[in-house]
Structures are given as structure tokens and as C-alpha cells.
Design a binder for these strands. Structure first.
Lengths: 354, 354
DNA sequence: CATCTCGCTGTAACCGGTTTCATGTAACCG
DNA sequence: CGGTTACATGAAACCGGTTACAGCGAGATG
């Protein structure tokens, strides 16, 4: 064990700024300046210090730096899984996180996943933000929008929310073009010759649910397609809800020849119901979903769907939060464009189409 | 704007330990003790301080605390997406993260997502660990196992790796029972009356790939089922690989009546190939996958598969890292049990089965 | 009553950076 | 050549905690 221990000590030899300064025959202040405002220090000194720093493996202690400057270069990620039904997953969580991490990392920030648990206090997040001197926070869709998060947003910390507006002095949000995406879905179906386009909507109290329904209605109206109340059924964004909704649609007086589901999981549930009824997709009924979750490509015959710019969420959030951290005004809400991905459930891509 | 600013200031009024001490008429040392070793301070004083702290909203500054104690109560998460092909996602990333966050949070730790980018240095992770005084790290499956990660593991930081052994003075790892899971899949198929059980293996250089193949072989041998080289085909864990592998199997001299695929995506690829050949699942060929990814439940007729204890990964990793942080010896590698989830692709659950 | 112990508390140094302010030097100008 | 200016640096205070050590009073003991 001895050599191993020695090895560790070597790696962990933490050189302080004073040691480095003494080694170079300069003052700690100068060393500090070399790293923080290199332009004000004499090039020769600068080189000297940098070389020595490299040699002894000097690394500034972030805690000390944060203590002195009150800037941690850390952004908190508020992501509560608790309110959700167990097992719930955000469809794009991983992509968002990749985008967020990459963008923040590129600007010199780290991402701290905030623990919810601070002795059971409701304002655990705000407390963590203050204890750790976080420079900003990103709120990932949190189901409920409870008072503690409000407090956080109103506290003055730069705060970017995903898919949901927040109010506060230094807040903004990022969302997808739900309206436009839904409209594109309807347009696609219409252009493929469908006339009777039904929709399985998401819960109206959710923002994406409401907006996608709005987009559907608007595009139907724009194209002069008739609005039939019995062709708008409510789902819950889950498989079973989509299945049930589709069965209702199949019983409608006039059977639709196309369905736009406001979420992929519901769309897949609809596929099941359609297959069960002995009908063919896309021949009898075409189906379009929303989100482009992983199964969409895997489930036969392939689900046409509206894809969101998942990594863009992370990137946009990172940009916005850094802007505010740097003292800028909160940027206006960012609405990310969506893309229609055409697969088998609407007949697949035609020549010349993407 | 004025009132808003004032509002912020209120929220941000950072009380220091000295102010709180003065307010209570005690010394800062006593206040510190109230929070760190309450048992040594007089109950009356303790109550006084706690009450005052609550009243003025005192929160200890973690940077100062870390600076003084060299413990940050933060664990780093090393998660490199870079080496992977773009768009690659870890099948359980979100569940692992939930487990990890919850378990760490319960023990008073936060999770810091380590940025890869430290001026392009290869040892960015170790540098970040040292700069931020991280107490430990968790390595999430990182594709390649490159030297910088080795350096990190050997540096003496408590280090838990997922699904892959690491070597270092204070390291351990968590993995699933791949061998047992594969064996369970074979047993299940055999018990359902299948005799000619083929397998679509994962790349042999990956640990799960190798172990699942091993489990398949062992169980086949144990049950006296013949080993046929042409019934063991190599896949790549992806859809297309599974599809291609299945087509090879269908061309085999003796057509298998069951297939165990070492990954769900490959299994789904196999389902496509089987359907294309005009065969029925499970009547003609039964299929079992591995991982229980989300699409497994959604793709008809439902994929029987070996589920891993995804959240358990996070929990186990958290336990292990905290043990080591607390000075304990590295716990032995943890092998998490797997569960067979029976769905339509092997005929669905029978009475009395789960 | 002297002494010892125990429980509680305060003083002050320390953790490792940053930053204000003062100072010294060299260059520039009239 | 005296005076101004720009540049480079150092001394020292400060950020907000922790903790070794010393001290004090009350109760126990001989």
C-alpha cells in the first residue's frame, strides 16, 4: 500500500498561490493577475509564472476563489422527479443535458444537480443556490409549478425555465414551436390527401397540450377543413390514453382517415388500437405524432412525427443563463423550430422529400 | 425596477456567521459548533442560535466551509458523450441519475456534472476534481476507457464506475448480473418448449456483450441443449445490426425457434426481420431481449426482456462512493440482480407468473 | 478549603484565493 | 532637467467559515 499512498500524495500535492509566488519570486497578487487579467502583467513575468504553474501542477482552488469573488461559475439544475408519477421520464432529458453541459462547459461553467433534500425544507433549491453561490439556475420541466420554485424565480437569481414561462426579475424561458409543429403535421396530412383529420390532444392545462391543439385548429381552419368536435379527443400523453382515445375516434360517425396525436406515446397507443380494429396504417388511417421519441423509429411501420430540437434546448438555456449572469437583460423567450420527420405511418418520404 | 431590485436584495441579504454571533451575543466559534457538533454546545445557547439563524435566514457559505475543511460534499459525475457516435444515449441514463441524485441527496451530497472542457486538456476531469475539492466521483459508462480516466482512478479520489471495472487505490464498480440475466432468458425459452435457441450477441469487447454470451452458453450447456456455432451471430447493440443478424439466422440450415438478443434494440431489429420473412412472433420464433428499454413495451407484440435494476445502479454507486469518502475501504464490486419481464414475444405471462 | 474534572465558550490563526491602494520605475514632454 | 504619466508590482485587508488551544465557572472529591 505504501507506494500507492505515496502516489496519491504526489497527485494531490496541492500547491497554493503563495508557494507558486515564492517559487517565482513574485507576490501572490501577481500570480493571481496572471490567471485573471493576464494583459496587465508583464509578458516575461507572465510566462515565468505560467511555466512554473505548469511544472508544479498548480491549480487554483475554486472554493477560495468563489469565496473571494462571489462567483462560482456553477449553474444549478433544478430537476424534481418527486412530484411525477414514479418511473416518469422526460422524453429528452438526456439530450437536453448534453446540450446544456456542452454549452455551459464551453463557457467555463459547471452544472450542479441540485438536491431536493435539505432537511425537508420546501425552499431547498433557493437555499442551495445561496449556500453554493450559484450564478444561475436552469429549471427542467417540473410537472407542478409550486411556490418554492416561484420563490426561486423571484429571488433574483438568473433563471431559465424549459417549456414553461416563469416570472421573476431575471428570468426567461425556452420552448418549442408547438403551434407551428402541430400545424406542420396537419399540413403534411392534408398534402398527402387526407381530408378527415382528427386529433388526440394532450391535457389542456399543460402548455404543450394546449399549444399543439391550438396549432391543429388553426391549420385546419386555414385549409378550410371542417372542425368536428367529435374528432378532437382528450388524451393524457401516455400509451393507454392514446389507445383509448383512438378507440373513441374509431367509433365516431365519420371515421377519420388521419390522426394527429399530440405526443408519440399516444400515437403509438393509437397504432395499437388501429391494428386491433383490423385497419391498416397508413392505407386506412395515417398517423402523426409529436416529439420523435426513440420508439417512434422502431415501432412498425415507423411513426411520422414532429421532432423538437432537443439539444437546442440545452444550448439555448445555457446561452440565456450566461447572458443574464454576465449582467445582460433577460433575453426574450426563445421558441425553437420543429421539424417534421416523415416515416411509414404517413406513407414514408416521397421523392425529393427529406 | 427599483422595487424589484430592493426585493432581490432582501432575498440575498447574506448573513455571515459573525453577524449571527454578534446578534446572539456569542462567538462565531460557538455558532459554528451549533451547526457542526451541536452536542457540545449548551442546549439553551443552541436553541437561541438556531432560532436567530432561522429568523435572519442565515445560511452557511459552502465555499468558505469547503475552503476550511477541504470537504465539499460534492460528488463529480464523469459522463463523456464525446467519444460516442453522435446521438448515442445511455439506455438508463435518466434512471441512474435519479437514483444517484436521490441517494446522494439523502446523504447530504450534491452532484456536479463535470465539464470535459478545460482548455482542451486531457486530464480535465482530475483537474476539476482537485479545483473543486470534490469528495468523490462516479464514472458513467464512457465508451472508451482512455488514459485520463485511468489517471483519475489512480489519483486516489474515491471513484465508482458503472458497468466497468476500474483500477485504483480507492475504486470499485457496480454492474448488472449479465450472466445470470442471459441464463434466465435461455431458461425461460426452454421452459416454454423451445429447443433451438439462437443468440444475437453484443460486441465481445464490451463487458455486457461478453458476459451475456457467456451466460447464454452456460445455460445452454446446463440444459443439454446443443451448441451450434451458426446460431451465435454477432450484433452491435443497434437496430440495424439486430436486423442483419436475424436475417443470417433465418438462412441457417436449421431455423431456430427462439432467439435471445443481448440488447433490446437488436431484438427489435430481429422482430422486423422476422415479420419481413412472413413469420410470426411468438408462434414461429420467440424473442427475448435485454435491458427493458422504453420501446420494449411499446413495440408489438411486446418484447420479453431482461430488466436491469436501473435506479439501483445509482443508489449502489452513491452508497459505495460515500462509504469510501467516509474513510471506509472500497466495497467489493456490486452485482445487481436482473429480472425477466415476460411479454408477448414469448407468449406473454402465464397464470401465476409475474 | 484546595484541587481536580467537566462542560462550555472565546480568541485567534488559518484555509487560498482576490483586490484596493500605494509605490517604484521608466518613458515622455515641454 | 523637473514634472507628468503609464505600467508593473507588492503589502495587506478581506471573503466566511473552522478549529486548536486556552480559559473560566460550577460541581465533585479528598
Amino acid at each position: 500500500m505504501k507506494p500507492v499512498t505515496a502516489r496519491c500524495d504526489t497527485f494531490w500535492s496541492v500547491a497554493t498561490i503563495r508557494e507558486l509566488a515564492r517559487l517565482c519570486g513574485v507576490s501572490p497578487a501577481t500570480v493571481s493577475r496572471v490567471f485573471n487579467s493576464p494583459e496587465v502583467v508583464n509578458p516575461k513575468t507572465r510566462e515565468l509564472v505560467l511555466r512554473a504553474a505548469e511544472r508544479i501542477g498548480y491549480l487554483p482552488n475554486e472554493s477560495a476563489r468563489t469565496l473571494a469573488t462571489k462567483r462560482s461559475f456553477m449553474v444549478g439544475l433544478v430537476w424534481d422527479t418527486d412530484h411525477r408519477r414514479p418511473g416518469w421520464r422526460h422524453p429528452f432529458f438526456q439530450d437536453i443535458l448534453i446540450g446544456l453541459k456542452t454549452a455551459l462547459s464551453g463557457r467555463g461553467y459547471h452544472l450542479l444537480m441540485l438536491a431536493t433534500n435539505d432537511g425537508g425544507r420546501p425552499d431547498a433549491h433557493l437555499r442551495a443556490v445561496r449556500r453554493h453561490n450559484l450564478d444561475g439556475v436552469v429549471l427542467i420541466d417540473n410537472g407542478t409549478w409550486d411556490p418554492p420554485l416561484r420563490t426561486l424565480a423571484e429571488s433574483g437569481v438568473p433563471c431559465v425555465s424549459l417549456d414553461r414561462p416563469v416570472e421573476g426579475p431575471r428570468t426567461t424561458y425556452v420552448t418549442s414551436d408547438n403551434v407551428g409543429g402541430a400545424a406542420a403535421a396537419v399540413r403534411h396530412l392534408h398534402e398527402r390527401g387526407r381530408r378527415t383529420i382528427a386529433t388526440i390532444a394532450g391535457p389542456e392545462r399543460t402548455r404543450p397540450g394546449a399549444e399543439r391543439l391550438q396549432g391543429y385548429r388553426a391549420e385546419m381552419a386555414r385549409r378550410g377543413l371542417p372542425y368536428r368536435p367529435e374528432h378532437v379527443v382528450q388524451g393524457d400523453f401516455y400509451l393507454a390514453g392514446g389507445y383509448a382515445a383512438m378507440r373513441r375516434l374509431l367509433e365516431a360517425e365519420e371515421r377519420p382517415d388521419a390522426v394527429f396525436a399530440a405526443g408519440d406515446e399516444m400515437a403509438i397507443g393509437a397504432l395499437h388500437a388501429i391494428a386491433e380494429a383490423g385497419l391498416k396504417v397508413p392505407q386506412d388511417i395515417a398517423v402523426v405524432g409529436f416529439d420523435d421519441i426513440e420508439p417512434a423509429a422502431l415501432v412498425p411501420p415507423g411513426l411520422t412525427t414532429v421532432a423538437q430540437d432537443t439539444a437546442g434546448f440545452g444550448t439555448a438555456a445555457a446561452e440565456a443563463v450566461v447572458t443574464m449572469i454576465d449582467g445582460g437583460d433577460p433575453p426574450p423567450p426563445r421558441v425553437l423550430p420543429t421539424t417534421l420527420v416523415v416515416r411509414g405511418s404517413t406513407g414514408g418520404p416521397l421523392r425529393g422529400e427529406r
